[in-house]
Amino acid sequence: MMRRLAILAATAGLTAAGHADAQDGATIYKRCAACHLANGAGVPGAFPPLKTDVRKLAATPAGRRYLALVVIRGVSGPITVEGKAYRGMMPAQAGLNDAQVAAVLNHVVRGGSAKAFTPKEIAGYRAGSAALNSAAVGRLQPK
């Protein structure tokens, strides 16, 4: 039975612990790269970079919630990233499930000191955010 569950999880892109694997995060990130670029550098004045500030945010409870909600609900400015103001809009990535959101966030913050995002953690943020729109998420950005 356990072997069958492990095979089903692997087929679904999950580890035996139920987490989406790093390769899935890299694959999912391809949809983000259209704006944030393949290396996460962003486009000055248009799309923020996904490097230093994102890793710092992932190391705090409020920052983790904010990052998850940016993916789940989208975000619209004004926001400040790496000292620069952005007033654009990122649409919600509504087609991603909790494991996929965790995987893409883990891909983006890799190399940082933050603990890994889990599908259970993402589910909690999703459950508590039904009333939020992208502008409300922008106002949640930790300073």
Rank of each mutant, 00 (worst) to 15 (best):
L14I: 02
K51I: 12
V54A: 11
E82A: 08
A38Q: 15
R64N: 06
I79L: 05
M2D: 14
S113H: 12
A17L: 12
I122C: 04
N97K: 10
R73D: 05
I28N: 00
H36F: 03
A12F: 01
G95A: 14
S129H: 06
R110K: 15
L14H: 02
L14F: 00
P142D: 04
A46H: 13
A136V: 07
A17G: 12
Y29A: 06
G128M: 05
A46M: 14
T11E: 12
A26D: 07
N39G: 05
P48L: 04
P44L: 12
A16D: 14
H19D: 15
V108E: 08
R139A: 10
T15H: 01
A62L: 07
R110M: 07
L69V: 05
M89G: 15
R3D: 13
M2E: 13
A22C: 08
V104S: 09
A135T: 09
K51Y: 10
L57H: 09
G77T: 01
P48K: 01
T52I: 13
T60M: 00
G138C: 02
G42Y: 08
R110C: 08
R126W: 07
A12G: 04
L5I: 11
Y29S: 05
T27I: 12
A6I: 13
T60Y: 01
M89W: 14
A131L: 10
T52C: 07
V101H: 08
G138E: 00
A17H: 10
R3N: 13
Y29P: 07
L67K: 03
I79H: 02
K30H: 09
Q23H: 14
C35Y: 06
K51F: 10
H107W: 07
D24L: 15
Y125V: 00
A102P: 08
R55G: 09
G124T: 06
A114V: 08
P119E: 06
K143S: 13
Q100F: 01
L57Q: 11
A38K: 14
R87F: 14
I79G: 03
L14E: 03
V70C: 00
Q23I: 13
K56C: 07
E121Q: 04
P78L: 07
I28Y: 01
